[in-house]
Design a protein around this nucleic acid. Structure first.
Lengths: 152, 152
DNA sequence: GCATATTCAATTGCGAACAATTAAATGTGA
DNA sequence: TCACATTTAATTGTTCGCAATTGAATATGC
């Protein structure tokens, strides 16, 4: 009775779904870490590389919009990627405010090595592909609604 | 065709579901932040307080197990809560290795003020309660399977 | 009882994450 | 043209998150 109440209590549900997402994000990070260690990347760095492998020579802002991150996070991260010789940062000649991020040959080459990174998660999840696709779409929809609330 | 392939490509799905969770966690954090600011808490601090409001006088390790956090994260966080006069940290007399965390009167009092925190998420989500419960359960199940993989 | 292993918290160092501010470049209106 | 707003990165300061190490207390095996 009190158990049923606590599960359906909307007050707690907010907390519960938020914590579920929060703790799942950490769990993903822990699974990815040993795989990414071999590439010398952290997970946020890996996300940036995924963006760049799709399209190169983009301003910092474009990366930030795709990953929902701001320059306070990206600037030092990109400097670390530059220090690792994976990207080059150059100011745009058309708009001097922009810094364009381009992959180095090593940055491009890393794409092949990264192929094997996402593999064990699906196996470990014990879900069908369609279940995971549905789940992903639900989470994305929730995220987008939350972000819409923030934008007002 | 290529669109369908990319959606069903298990390689990308791994990345996509992980990023969905990662970005949703940030979105939640941004929604909670202005509400928690009024309490003078960050989201991880709020999680610790939620644990303590359920049960008091627990060792650091118990908190860590519930929130999937270690002492490297919790020790400084708890010191900040102590500096804010919300908790008291005392070494257990039974086992001197343990530090017990107890709420101060102000820590207890904050529970009432925190009642209004989880509220807008459900409204903003545009989902039914049962949909959100199902979603939460799926995410928790996935998280637990991921954590099981880490434990080997 | 004593050496060894385990447990627990604290510490250190590094990398996010973000708010708030700064500074420079660009765009706009009068 | 010139004042003003906007855009874009960079900077600064605070807080997480975790790996790795340390150190102390407790438990275990012999």
């Amino acid at each position: 009775m009190s158990r049923k109440l606590s599960t359906l209590d909307p007050q707690r549900l907010d907390n519960q779904i938020c914590f579920a997402v929060y703790s799942a994000a950490h769990a993903f990070n822990r699974v990815y870490k040993p795989l990414l260690d071999r590439l010398g990347l952290t997970y946020p760095q890996y996300l940036v590389m995924l963006v760049l492998w799709e399209r190169d020579d983009v301003p910092v802002k474009d990366i930030g919009e795709k990953l929902f991150l701001d320059s306070g996070t990206l600037t030092p991260l990109l400097k670390r990627l530059e220090a690792a010789h994976l990207v080059k940062r150059t100011r745009s000649s058309e708009d001097e405010r922009q810094v364009l991020i381009a992959l180095t040959p090593q940055g491009h080459a890393l794409k092949e090595k990264a192929r094997s990174v996402p593999q064990s998660i699906l196996a470990a999840s014990n879900c069908t592909v369609s279940e995971l696709v549905a789940m992903k779409d639900e989470i994305v929809a929730l995220r987008d609604r939350l972000n819409a609330v923030i934008g007002e």
